[in-house]
Each structure stands twice: as structure tokens, then as C-alpha cells.
Design a protein around this nucleic acid. Structure first.
Length: 402
RNA sequence: GCAGGGUUAGUGAAGCGGUCAAACACGGCAGACUGUAAAUCUGCUGGCUUAUGCCUUCGCAGGUUCGAAUCCUGCACCCUGCA
């Protein structure tokens, strides 16, 4: 226990790296493995905090870059911190803004999906003239997506912003590369991310010393290295040797090799600290990540996809906009315990989404969030019961039929 | 009754002799979405289809022309003025 933060492992599997545990933070505990719902701008899009809670969420992850731009991290600080500001009295995380190095930089306007074997052409990396984020060794210059104004993020500023926002768990400022960046660039970028990790630690020490009465805010170091085993292991060793409270595994990962890559990293990282995987939530990825030692993970997908009409079922992820649902008065998923499925039909939800009614986004988000959290709850229970591998096999066979 | 204006694909609306199966918007259909520039984006949207291909379409009927959604005549309906 360090100032209200701790991680305790309850059950470890023999045959895989999967485990259950509890992360304790000043705002409460997280039973792991856990899906952390994304609330980028201090709100889970289209959902009230009560609905997020009722869907089973234990924690929310917001974004430093977005809150720095609007409303300003100092506003969140003055409000009493993220939890109080957004009326989410449970644990919170903040991402460092590292993702925006890619999404506004070389990945600007590009699909950042973790697909392998796709056609590789110039279209996949944004030309420099179109980018809104530019990296150098000291930091990143962003052009705001809101008004085009220039902003400079450094590891120090990211930590200052995250500290002001007041999340229980912060991440180091890292550079997220594209899978398509050449090896030489991955090496260069990794060195930069490592230098930044040290600077983040120095900065957080300074802030803790200056404000000793604040609730403890944990800092997780991020491991990069793309799809290269040597780089991933090197990164795991380097970041793992630094005094972080936990770790984030991020960056470009070929979907098919997710489990393998996470295993490399987790073999290098200290086993007794929590591991967060950034940006995943597809069922197969969830099973792979957890089997490879991941304790928590976050993703925009369940809520983003919900707003566009897709909903999770045990048999895949169809789209309610389909004409076949026009007169389908069944719930999205039979026997689903979520509020949406208890009260609304596919026909109604299809109508709401088609009509652009915000309630549609809300109800769809409730279902998808509930579904993914329920899946992770079931996985957690299966690890405890020793049936994880059975669940993994039967669940995935049904969801992804050949 | 007189004088103008109008009638284009599911809807609205461009086009005003050939390059028009007909811009564009919406709607419809299908697909995408993995640390949220995402209530967004992409494709298709007369029929048949492998098609640089054929067939049927621009109120209705007829005509001019090598060629008409585009010009002329008649008819039908709608709108605006004046009666």
C-alpha cells in the first residue's frame, strides 16, 4: 500500500498468465481483470455516470490532452478533481495524450485498427503536410483539433495536467508509433519513449513533494516496441526496472500476435504489479490479453460502435440499422440483464439510431458496455473457478464461427 | 376567361439540342469502427448484368432533328397576378 494505492493478486493460473486481483485506489477498488470504460472528455459519451455504474463499470479513463484543451485541466482541478467534476466517485485513469501523437500525427485521418496482412501503401500513413502532431525528442507540438491553435506537450506537462486532473492512475507520456513505421523508426521512438518515462517519474516526484497532502496518484509506465520481440523485451526490461506503480502495454500490435507480444512483455515486467493494456475490447483480444497476464484494459469501441448501431451478442456483433430488424420486437440480446434489453426492442432501437435520436446512442451504449463488462466478469469468475480455458474455447467458438 | 410560371428517378432539386441513366442533397441499402478529431466514415442506390454492353425513364400524346429531359403543337394537372 502506497498512499492509498495497492495491487493484490488473488488467484493465478498455472497454464496461462491469467490471474485475478484487486487494485485499490483512493476512490475505491477494482476487481481484476477489469474493463475500464473510456470517458475521454470527462464523460462516457451518451451515458450518465449512474448508467455507467449500473452497466457494471468499476473505473473510467479520461484523456489529458482533451481535458487540457477543454475545459482546461486547471478547471477540473478547481472543481475538486476528475471524480468530483464528472460525478464519478469511483476510480479514474487518465491517458497521457500519447495516443494523440499518433492519431493526430502519422495516423491522422487514417484507420488505426490493429489489422495485419492488410494492403500497405502510402495511404496508411498521413503525409507530413496533413499532420496535426509533430514529435521531437523533447516533446510533441499539437495543432488543436478544436481551433487549430498550437500546443506543446512534454512529458512534464502531461504529468502536470494529469496530476491536476486528479485521476487515481496516470500514464507516462509516450510516443505511439504505427505498425507501418520502419524498424529504425521504432528504435528511435522507443528510446524517446524511455527518456520520457524517466522524465515523467521525475516530474511526478516533484509534484508529490510539493503537494504531499493530495491523494496518491499512481503512475503507470508504458511499454512500446510495436511487433518486434527484441524491442518489446528491451522495453519491458527498461520500463520494468523503473519505480512505476503499474504498467501499460500499448502501441502498434498485430491483432493475430497480440497474446504473443503481451507475453514477451509480461515475462520481463515485475509480476506483482498491475498491467493495463491500452485500447482493446474485442472479445478475442480480451481473452488473449487476459491469458497473457493483463489485469485491466480500456477501449472506445463498445461505446463508439454502439452510437453507430452495432451491438454485441454471443453470436457476433451485428448492426441494428439492418432492414431485417425493422419489425423485430425482441431485445438486442435475449436474457441480457442490461436496462436496454429489459425494456426496448431492436425495432425501437433501430428507429432511434436511424432517426438520430440521442437516446438511441445511450441505450446502445448501455448494452455494449454491460456486455463487455459481463464478459470480463465471467472471465474473472472462470479464473477463480479454474475453468478459464474452457470458457475461452466455447465462448470464442460461438462468437467467431468458422 | 386573359397573362405568366411550373410538372425530372423514393423526396427535394440541377440540367435547357449531342459528352444524360440524368449533378447535388436527403432518404434507402450495405459495410467499417480497438489508449475517441467518430451522434463519424466508406460504397451502392432505374432494370438486366462479366460488360468501354443492352433495355426502359425526365406529366401525357404527337411532331421537328442524324440526335430531344432540353425545340414545336395539343392535352392534363399545379402555382401566381389580372378579371
Amino acid at each position: 500500500m502506497k498512499g492509498g494505492f495497492s495491487f493484490e493478486i488473488n488467484k493465478e493460473m498455472d497454464s496461462t498468465l491469467a490471474r485475478t486481483g484487486v487494485i485499490k485506489t483512493p476512490h475505491g477498488s477494482i476487481q481484476t481483470p477489469a474493463f475500464i470504460v473510456v470517458g475521454t472528455t470527462a464523460t462516457v459519451k451518451a451515458m450518465l455516470p449512474e448508467q455507467v455504474r449500473e452497466a457494471g463499470a468499476q473505473a473510467v479513463l479520461a484523456n489529458a490532452y482533451h481535458l487540457y484543451l477543454r475545459p482546461g485541466h486547471e478547471v477540473v482541478e478547481q472543481a475538486g478533481g476528475l471524480s468530483k467534476f464528472m460525478n464519478w466517485p469511483e476510480p479514474t485513469f487518465t491517458d497521457s495524450g500519447g495516443f494523440q501523437v499518433l492519431s493526430l500525427g502519422s495516423g491522422f485521418k487514417k484507420v488505426l485498427a490493429m489489422q495485419s496482412g492488410q494492403a500497405i501503401d502510402e495511404e496508411v500513413i498521413a503525409p507530413v503536410s496533413e499532420r496535426r502532431a509533430f514529435v521531437d525528442d523533447d516533446g510533441v507540438t499539437f495543432k488543436s483539433h478544436l481551433d487549430g491553435s498550437s500546443h506543446r506537450f512534454t512529458p512534464e506537462l502531461s504529468i502536470q495536467v494529469q496530476h491536476a486532473i486528479g485521476a487515481d492512475i496516470m500514464f507516462t507520456f509516450d510516443e505511439l508509433t504505427s505498425l507501418l513505421d520502419p524498424y529504425d523508426y521504432q528504435v528511435e521512438s522507443l528510446a524517446r519513449t524511455h527518456a520520457w518515462a524517466r522524465r515523467c517519474i521525475a516530474e511526478v516526484r516533484k509534484l508529490r513533494k510539493a503537494q504531499p497532502k493530495r491523494p496518491y496518484q499512481a503512475l503507470f509506465g508504458i511499454v512500446q516496441g510495436a511487433q518486434h520481440e527484441d524491442l518489446r523485451r528491451q522495453a519491458g526490461q527498461f520500463i520494468g526496472a523503473l519505480p512505476f506503480d503499474g504498467f501499460g502495454i500499448g502501441g502498434a500490435i498485430e491483432k493475430d500476435r497480440l497474446g504473443e507480444i503481451v507475453r514477451w512483455v509480461n515475462e520481463e515486467l515485475p509480476a506483482d504489479k498491475p498491467k493495463h493494456m491500452l485500447g482493446i475490447s474485442e472479445p478475442d483480444d480480451i481473452f488473449e490479453a487476459i491469458a497473457s497476464g493483463i489485469d485491466t484494459f480500456d477501449c472506445v469501441s463498445p461505446t463508439r460502435v454502439a452510437r453507430n448501431g452495432s451491438f454485441y451478442t454471443y453470436d457476433g456483433r451485428p448492426d441494428v440499422n439492418g432492414a431485417r430488424y425493422r419489425r423485430d420486437f425482441n431485445p438486442l440480446l435475449e436474457d441480457c440483464g442490461c436496462y436496454t434489453c429489459q425494456h426496448y426492442s431492436r425495432a425501437y432501437l433501430r428507429h432511434l439510431i436511424k432517426a438520430g435520436e440521442r437516446t438511441g446512442a445511450t441505450l446502445m451504449s448501455i448494452h455494449n458496455t454491460h456486455f463487455i463488462i459481463k464478459l470480463v466478469d465471467d472471465i474473472r469468475a472462470s479464473i477463480t473457478a479454474g475453468t478459464f480455458l474452457d470458457l475461452k474455447k466455447t465462448w470464442l467458438q460461438r462468437y467467431y464461427p468458422k
